[in-house]
Every structure is written in C-alpha cells, then in structure tokens.
C-alpha cells in the first residue's frame, strides 16, 4: 500500500537536516562554558543564560516588545474581529477589494513600510517612538488577525445566529452569545500567530529606535554586531521554546490547515 521510495525519503531527510540542523547547533552552543562561541562547546555551563539577565538593554527591550505586541494585538483585535466577521458573514459589492485591502500590509515590503512609518508617522504625524511602534505593529498584525479569524469563520454556520435572533436575542447580543463563543479558539490562535509575527518583527522596528528604546529583536541585532558570544544562542533557545509552545497551542486550537492554505 504505502509508497516506498528511499531516495526521496533520504532527500527529504537532508532537507530537514538543513532546516533544523542550524537551530540544533546554536542550541548546543548556548551551553558553552568558555568565552567564545564555538561548536561543539568545550565545557558545559549555563553562564550565558545568566548573562542575558546582566545585559540591561535585553531586559528593557524585552519589556518593550511584549508591551508593544500585546497592546498592538488588542487594538488589532478590536479592529479586525468586526471586519473579519463582516467579511465572512455578508456578501456585498467590493468585498474582494476590501479583503485584499486588509491583507495588503503583508504584501508591502516590510522594510519599505517601516521607512514610510518613520518618515510620516514618526516624522509628519509626530507620534512618539512608543506610539509609533504600537501603531506600526498594529498595522502588521491586522492582516494575520483577519486572515486567521476569517478562516475559522469560513465553516461557521450562520443560521445559528438566526436561531438566536428568533429566540429574542439582539444583533449585538447574538454576536457575543452565539458567534464569539464558537470562534473563541480561532481568535486565540489569531492572537498567538499575530503575536509571534509582531514579536519577531525586525523590518519595521529597526526604524523605530530611540535613546533607550528598541524592541528585543533589534537589541539582538545590535548585540550580534558588537559581541560574538553565546548569549544570543541562549536567547535563541528561550525564543525557540516559546515559539514551539505557541505553535503547539495553535495546532491544538485550529490544526495546521491555516499554514498550508494560501
């Protein structure tokens, strides 16, 4: 029954070795005991994990990143959930255009988008760096929120809404009592995917730094430019653990079809 093709299996194995091997290697280097980053490490220690907490800018920028991603997420939800609902629930003229409009922040090159933000949101609109980071991250999270929630609404049976209304619920009441509970897991998945997208963002945040202000990935870039020690490896391991955790939750919540559908 099953197709046995050793050549292809070996090829695929090598492809995955290429994909995952580097991540494994830096994980190993994070346990280096010496001063220089190398593979394989010479002795085992956790000192570079400790070192993360000695670099003050890591702690500050981590807080900044978390705050920006969370606040942006919240605003993106407030804007995105109603839009995703409208786009899934109703048929109207110009629907495809509106849909494309909401997804467009993914299509504009991030490094261009960041520059436009710098020039106009920080420059012309005169928003402070923190506010600009918040707005910019909301923009890039919005398409993910809308896409994931739309995909979880795509097999939603809207006739239960009518059932609720026929039983006396108001339109808004129906949304909160009938629709929302049913797409809870979709929303949660959307939040997590958007969070990762925002937390890992470089292209936009790289323009939005100020005295003592920058996001975590930008701080990592700065660090790598100045020091080549296993601190970044240690951070990488922590980030990968968080990523894996988020990924498993998303998988539990809505499976993997979101990633394979395009």
């Amino acid at each position: 029954m099953q197709e046995k093709n050793r050549g292809l299996a070996l090829f695929t194995f090598l492809v995955f070795l290429f994909l995952l091997g580097p991540l494994l290697i830096i994980s190993v280097t994070s346990f280096e005991g010496g001063n220089i980053l190398k593979f394989p490490p010479e002795e085992f220690s956790l000192r570079w994990y400790e070192n993360i907490f000695n670099v003050e800018m890591f702690l500050i920028s981590f807080k900044t990143s978390i705050l920006v991603s969370l606040a942006g997420n919240l605003l993106a939800l407030l804007l995105g959930v109603p839009a995703a609902y409208a786009l899934s629930r109703f048929d109207f003229k110009g629907k495809t255009i509106i849909n494309a409009f909401f997804v467009s922040p993914i299509l504009v090159p991030g490094i261009v988008l960041g520059f436009a933000f710098l020039r106009y949101i920080v420059g012309t609109y005169q928003l402070p760096i923190y506010a600009a980071l918040f707005v910019g991250h909301t923009v890039i999270m919005l398409p993910f929120i809308i896409r994931v929630i739309s995909s979880s609404l795509s097999n939603f049976d809207f006739s239960i809404e009518e059932a609720a209304e026929s039983l006396g619920a108001s339109k808004v009441g129906t949304f909160f009592t009938v629709v929302l509970p049913n797409i809870k897991s979709g929303i949660l998945a959307a939040v997590m995917i958007a969070f990762l997208e925002s937390f890992n963002n470089v292209d936009i945040s790289v323009y939005m730094t100020g005295p003592g202000v920058s996001t975590f990935p930008i701080q990592m870039l700065t660090y790598v430019e100045n020091y080549f020690d296993p601190t970044i490896s240690a951070i990488s391991v922590l980030l990968m653990i968080i990523t894996a955790f988020f990924m498993f939750i998303v998988e539990r919540l809505m499976g993997l079809s979101y990633f394979t559908k395009r």
């Binding site: 580097p22 991540l23 990762l196 890992n200 470089v202 990935p217 970044i232 980030l239 990924m247 993997l256």
Partner: peptide, 15 residues
C-alpha cells in the same frame, strides 16, 4: 516545517 517559519529570523540567520 512550520516551526522554523515561526522562529525569529534573527535567530535563524544568526545560526
């Protein structure tokens, strides 16, 4: 496959 996709590009390039 998805795991590297979600992992920070800084981490991946650094590796």
């Amino acid at each position: 496959t998805i795991f590297p996709l979600l992992t920070s590009p800084v981490v991946r390039s650094f590796s």
